[in-house]
Nucleic acid binder design. Structure first.
Lengths: 343, 343
DNA sequence: GGTGTGCAGTGTTACGTATAACGTCGGGCC
DNA sequence: GGCCCGACGTTATACGTAACACTGCACACC
């Protein structure tokens, strides 16, 4: 009936025969030189005998800090961001922090202002540049007097911008390009995401720069939305364009690569025998396809954990240096030497 | 310098020339018959003129409720659970609730006890039966005096169990089986997840029951872990078993189906010409594969939203009835009539 | 004229914690 | 012996909110 009420620090104090302040000191770890070892351990003993858990609401109210960070990402159904969350929540937990998400659901935009309520309950923000629009509707974040902010996958060259955690995506796509060049490919098509963020701009620039110095190299480019159907259509355009047919499709993501593979087969061609296809992100999808995708593995968890660490440093008054995490080319079955005969 | 401090309800009261209690009444919506329309609107005006946001920590402390629910799922990187979260967070936001996750990160188990701290800050729990082990380490949840609990995809026939939200998975796999029977298949293999939860038990039972009455129908079964490689191996065993080769592979999930497709091709056979493969879940993966998977669409978002609604009802003192959500067969290219000649 | 009665609002308190400011008590030192 | 001091705690307070109990006050009713 009387569902055992959660004990408070005062209950612990009574049971241990000390004052509430002492309990707070001991459990808060600031008792050195203020409380004797004997009483301290006695307090700790009675505390977990009663199953005492500090009331976080009261603590937050008292301290004015919530030990909660807000993670702003476009969608958790994107595996990259799910893994990113995982990494962020991991280090957060190690420091007694929690992580809440925005926008929580796809459908709930700034209309109902889910952030409005969150705003009062968070200490800082970690935001992906791919959710910049969501961040824009937020207000005093990242500037003096506003909430501390860490940006992910965002242009690090901004003069007075917030701390950033980036991936070496340019390096990644250069590796893919070089891999395909080494296999003997010369006619490339770049399947680019039509999203105007730093990470995608860098890719387009990097592939163009890498091919610029190669004699005989040809590059065309198609932009499309980030889904399989759009990618299939775009790849179809790239393969059936006016010039000679490309032998390698460089895709900005594994999802796009999946669409590209379909387009190739739709023309009666084979992957990788007739056309090589490369992905990016190395999602679980890359290994589920047949043939498995050559892709670029992004350390998504580490982006999240590094972002969280940067935020924690920021909250400690430090100034975290921008970091760039390495990526890794993973060669699988979707890329091979080009066929000798021109189709 | 003096980063504009957040105004409190007392600041609003002073500015509006009323008492703090009045502000609380007005903004809390309980002012009908207690405060005049004129002052109420004046208070509201000054409130959002000052940009007032209630301090959630203080509110939680005062009310003893946090307006936060805990969602216990195995992993967000599983698209089903990401979508489920999305649905839950959606209705939560509509009711001023937040949703936190456990286990936040894959790696952080009960070791660091992330729940221990969350325990103090949540009003109720929504748990997937697939994370039952995580829930077990939690304590007084779901029983009298414990935290309100809603179970997802869990056996609804438990006598005094918590409210449940389920999917009609049995019906779903029956639909798939019937679809394959209608196409003319008679030799089936069931690729079953070796996870001992209600949802997977029901599937195994349903496919067996559906085939029991069909003359000439043969069913074998292989269990495997929920990843592509394990599924490929298991499907290989099923296809190369002692008896006649099955013409249809019924898989417990799209990920398993992806592995099954690989196994089929590894034997020099084709999907669906030689062997039909069906998935389950209808993740984005199903449409990314080539051919696209015939699968069973699960309304993951609605499971989450229904779970959240049930929890809200529970918190209101109600007793939500167990619900079962319908699923839908989606026929795509991975299933077809079996070949006439026996391979 | 006294007494209810509804309106419009105010004073006050408690939620549980962290910490600043304040005792108390014995011992060491000159 | 007086005095200070460190060790060990305690008392008191504030954080911002919600809600209970109360106060005036005008008006109506018998």
């Amino acid at each position: 009936m009387t569902g055992a009420v959660r004990p408070t620090s005062r209950d612990v104090a009574r049971a241990a025969g000390v004052s509430q302040a002492t309990v707070s000191l001991v459990l808060g770890g600031k008792w050195r030189g203020r409380v004797s070892e004997r009483t301290a351990s006695a307090v700790r003993a009675t505390a977990d005998e009663l199953g005492y858990r500090p009331n976080l609401a009261a603590r937050s109210l008292r301290l004015g800090r919530t030990r909660t960070a807000l993670l702003v990402v476009p969608a958790l159904t994107n595996e990259y961001f799910a893994r990113l969350y995982s990494g962020a929540a991991g280090v957060a937990a190690e420091h007694g922090f929690g992580v809440v998400l925005y926008p929580s659901p796809e459908g709930v935009g700034p209309a109902r202002d889910p952030f409005g309520s969150a705003r009062a309950a968070i200490d800082g923000v970690i935001a992906s540049s791919m959710a910049a629009d969501a961040l824009a509707g937020i207000g005093d974040v990242g500037r003096d007097g506003g909430l501390p902010l860490v940006m992910l996958d965002s242009d690090p060259s901004a003069p007075q911008g917030p701390p950033t955690v980036n991936l070496a995506v340019g390096d990644g796509i250069r590796q893919v390009t070089r891999h395909l060049l080494d296999l003997g490919h010369r006619r490339f098509a770049h399947l680019a995401a039509d999203v105007d963020t730093w990470t995608f701009r860098v890719r387009a620039e990097a592939v163009a720069a890498e091919l610029a110095g190669v004699p005989g190299a040809v590059l065309t480019s198609e932009r499309c939305a980030l889904d399989v159907a759009a990618a299939r259509a775009a790849a179809g355009r790239a393969l059936d364009g006016p010039g000679p047919r490309p032998t390698a499709l460089l895709c900005d993501g594994d999802v796009l690569a999946a669409g590209a593979c379909k387009a190739v087969r739709g023309l009666g061609l084979r992957v990788p025998d007739d056309v090589s296809v490369s992905g990016f992100d190395d999602l679980s999808l890359a290994s589920a396809l047949d043939p498995e995708l050559t892709s670029v593995r992004l350390p998504a968890e580490e982006v999240g954990s590094a972002g969280m660490r940067a935020l924690l440093e920021l909250l400690d008054g430090g100034t975290p240096r921008p970091s760039e995490l390495p990526v890794e080319l993973v060669v699988r079955g979707s890329t091979a030497r080009p066929a000798r005969r021109r189709p």
